[in-house]
């Protein structure tokens, strides 16, 4: 566990000394700001975060892979993975350490939007339950997206390729429910239950359904597991 934190700490430091995290954070804030302003100036403005958190989740499809693309791809490119894997560190400690660092950055980025929430409370009277559940959902959604991005980063030494693969996979996982609308019966159910999008909107309505939480947590677990496997097989190639 000590190794995990050492690796997470090192990644956090790099996040704060390189522009990636800042650029990604700024992009997210601008996007969230625009959707927020549109929602409160619309025809029937409502004092809720739903209107900007829902599109924000979609935006994570783009930015999560940008946050994770460096984590394992660069280690392979620089050859430092060889050093990490010949140090007395377990493969899972490397993967989890890196994941934690990206998660901290994501939560930090999300927390910047609390500014809008403060404005809602100052100028309106929002219902606190949906605000909290919406943020919980957003963090889970982002955390799952990061796990997907990390797997992509472990598969290649090229950061751009990692980002594209990550975004591609997330697009499929998010919008596969559109395919579901053309299917019937069990097939439709299965496709819908895979889709990230079917599991998200309830959170923004203030509904915290255990099945949705289980969905996102198991998605994180599965993708981290695959990432660890992928790092292990780096040795065998």
């Amino acid at each position: 566990m000590k190794n995990t934190f050492a690796i997470a700490w090192k990644e956090l430091k790099i996040y704060f000394t390189t522009p990636t995290a800042f650029v990604v954070g700024a992009m997210f804030l601008i996007y969230a700001g625009i959707t927020f302003v549109l929602s409160i100036t619309g025809r029937n403005p409502e004092a809720s975060v739903r209107s900007f958190i829902l599109p924000a989740s979609t935006f994570f499809i783009l930015i999560s892979p940008l946050l994770t693309m460096r984590l394992l791809a660069e280690e392979q490119k620089l050859g430092t993975l060889e050093l990490l894997l010949t140090s007395p560190v377990r493969d899972w400690e490397v993967v989890v350490g890196k994941y934690l660092a990206s998660l901290v950055i994501l939560i930090f980025t999300i927390s910047l939007t609390l500014y809008y929430v403060v404005m809602l409370y100052v100028f309106g009277n929002p219902d606190s339950g949906p605000v909290l559940s919406a943020y919980l959902g957003l963090i889970l959604y982002g955390a799952a997206a990061l796990a997907v991005g990390l797997l992509a980063s472990s598969l290649t030494a090229n950061q751009i390729v990692a980002a594209v693969m990550g975004t591609g996979t997330l697009l499929v996982l998010s919008f596969i429910d559109l395919v579901g609308t053309r299917l019937e019966g069990t097939a439709a159910d299965i496709v819908n239950s895979i889709s990230m999008r079917t599991h998200f909107p309830d959170f923004t309505r203030g509904v915290v359904d255990t099945s949705h939480i289980v969905y996102f947590v198991s998605m994180i677990a599965v993708f981290l597991f695959l990432t660890i496997r992928s790092v292990e097989t780096r040795r065998w190639r």
Partner: peptide, 14 residues
Amino acid sequence: IGYLPETVPLYTDM
């Protein structure tokens, strides 16, 4: 073991 691989593995951003 202390190991120096063939391509010197350094984190350039540190």
